[in-house]
Design a protein around this nucleic acid. Structure first.
Lengths: 328, 328
DNA sequence: GTGAAAGCGCTAACAT
DNA sequence: ATGTTAGCGCTTTCAC
């Protein structure tokens, strides 16, 4: 494995000049540049990043925090963000927290010790302030977690509004009472959604009890299980605002299995507008996000910070869309 | 950010001793060890990995190659493998190739230049020999890509057999002619599957034309599109072996939309036994994999190689399972 | 059992 | 425009 010293020897210049060529510095003679480039090609030299990193105290690596990868929303988001970062010349390390605060804490430690140059949060079990106190002035940006943008750049969809729209839609169709389910009711995101759910009820002059809120409903199987439980009671709910399309699909399957008709007996709506919505009978209504645009917004902001700029934290909330299909 | 030198100063020993404590060397006096540990706690010191890496020429980082993350099979596999690696004390960097040979080549370069200590392949657009010639004696292990295990440790399901079972099952139900679809027919995996598909036909004394093979069918939407195209012809296929459950779900939705009954008019089977199988009407038959076991097998092997052992490449092929549901 | 010193590959301030 | 040199944080001989 050749080093810049080898390149220097072969091309007959000093290693500083090699470094200058490598880093596209000005003030290098055309002649030196050519010789160095030839030597690089000849020895098929590639920079050892660890040397650079040790010297520069930078990694060109960004971390992304997701609760779990085996999830249609987070895998899609991680896929898009990874590509976006790569295109911007950064490597991406994906961290799964499995909704655990301990696992999330370790990631902040990694950031503080500069194992990554910045962190993208897509979910958190902490509040914005708690995170800020941990990470100090390290770079953190937030993607579609419902922080207020007080500490970090935050871009995403207005989740309170999204849930209001979904809930209002079901209530408007005459579905009541409703139930609501989310993956982690302790997170700010789920709290926002829950507020939107309640606001829609108030808007229609209806009461909604805390008992219609279900926590830790994440996967298709969770949706099936919740449906099996709630649909078999004497008075099953008339409508469901599900935390994701996968959960919604599971609930729909349970309704079919129990013999309830969708949307006549029970109406269902999910989040994300994932293509799974097209594969159920009836097809699933959903709230849509423009993830690609969100990713670009976020990366733009992140790039600025990585270049040392330090503007006030920004909050971008995009409008969600209602995609009405067969299930409502 | 404190360094071992700070620890050395505070604890009153030399930095070599600090290093020895850090690395759990023997021959350190109990007294020194205690003082160093106190200083570490006091300054909340954490090792700077880049220093270690530069010195040791190792990263404690493993790369994983997936075609794309936004895919139920690969995101699940990536999730499991990432957790398995983390538990073994390694970081994981996920690379998406988007089925491009160029993107994949870059990853091999990264391996050669030791940006990662090893690579886990879950898909490749190259042959085993081509990869070997690129990566030389760097560590590569293969997860469920159908290599022959001549060059690399390979663990996964016998895909030829899996496809034989799926195809045989449909033919046995009287479904003929069939069509077959895969994500990337140039890959060894899809070739194996295609061979299993043909072998099942031969087993039943039936012919199958190359025209029943469809390439680059990856997502739910691809499945819908393929279904719309093939189901509207005068003589639609009687059965489909789909490359993944998502594609199968898309095909099923298209069949329903076109007015074909499943399984009466057309029978469908997918791969992976993903829970989406439970959410369609009818539910989807599928070929099941034991991914968690595969991940553990693989990690065991990988750990050995990372410890410098260099046994002959191993080939583990687990038996696939047939999960019969409503669609066949 | 412990410390001094060399060096992993690289960049940048300083000198020329 | 180019070379010399120090040093990023760490591990590991080699002395003692």
């Amino acid at each position: 494995m050749p080093t810049i010293l080898d390149i220097a020897r072969v091309s007959g210049v000093s290693k500083s000049t090699v470094s200058r060529v490598l880093n596209h510095h000005p003030h290098v003679s055309e002649d030196s540049r050519r010789k160095v480039e030839e030597a690089i090609k000849e020895l098929s030299y590639v920079r050892n990043l660890r040397g650079v990193q040790l010297r520069l105290q930078r990694n060109h690596t960004i971390g992304i925090v997701v609760p779990l990868l085996d999830h249609p929303y987070f895998s899609r988001l991680a896929g898009i963000l990874t590509k976006t970062c790569r295109d911007a010349g950064y490597k991406m390390v994906i961290h799964q927290t499995f909704f655990s605060q301990d696992a999330e804490s370790e990631i902040y430690d990694a950031l503080i010790h500069k194992e990554v140059d910045a962190l993208i949060l897509t979910h958190s079990a902490f509040s914005e302030e708690e995170i800020k106190s941990r990470v100090q002035d390290q770079i953190v940006v937030v993607c579609n977690e419902q922080f207020e943008g007080a500490q970090f750049d935050t871009v995403g969809v207005d989740e309170e509004e999204a849930t209001f729209i979904a809930t209002d839609h079901l209530l408007h169709q005459g579905a009541f009472p409703l139930i609501f389910c989310g993956d982690d009711m302790d997170s700010p995101l789920q709290q926002k959604r829950w507020e939107g759910f309640k606001r829609a009820h108030a808007h229609h002059g209806l009461e909604c009890a805390d008992t219609c809120c279900h926590n830790k409903v994440i996967t298709i199987e969770d949706g099936v299980a919740l449906g099996e439980e709630r649909f078999r009671t004497a008075s099953p709910p008339k409508g469901i605002v599900a935390g994701s399309d996968f959960v919604a699909a599971g609930l729909l399957a349970a309704a079919n299995a129990v013999g309830l008709s969708v949307p006549e007996d029970v109406k269902i709506i999910g989040f994300d507008d994932h293509p799974i919505c097209l594969t159920t009978s009836p097809t699933l209504s959903s709230i849509s996000y423009a993830l690609d645009e969100i990713a670009l917004d976020l990366m733009g902001r992140l790039t600025q910070r990585l270049q040392g700029k330090n503007p006030e934290p920004l909050l971008i909330k995009r409008k969600p869309g209602l995609v009405r299909r067969g299930s409502s």
